[in-house]
């Protein structure tokens, strides 16, 4: 069960996010312009770290007890 690499199909998440953004009249271009390079880099680092943590949690060899 947990070996399944994709919990939720990509398209579902994609649709969910775009639907929420559309419904709230979010202008994605102005959102992009709100970010400077420093913030972009910070977010990128954050996301990458979380991604590694999630990957290692999902594929972890569980702690052994005896």
């Amino acid at each position: 069960m947990s070996e399944n690499p994709k919990a939720i199909p990509n398209k579902v998440v994609d649709l969910l996010v775009s639907e929420v953004l559309r419904k709230n009249n979010v202008n994605i271009d102005s959102a992009k312009s709100n970010l400077n390079d420093e913030q972009k880099k910070a977010i990128k680092d954050l996301v990458e770290e979380l991604k590694t943590q999630v990957d290692s949690f999902v594929n972890q060899s569980p702690d052994k007890k005896e």
Binding site: K6, A7, I8, N10, V13, L16, V17, V47, L50, K51, V54, F57, V58
Partner: peptide, 8 residues
């Protein structure tokens, strides 16, 4: 967790 990561 995987779902949240996907959204992020």
């Amino acid at each position: 967790i995987q779902a949240l990561l996907d959204v992020l």
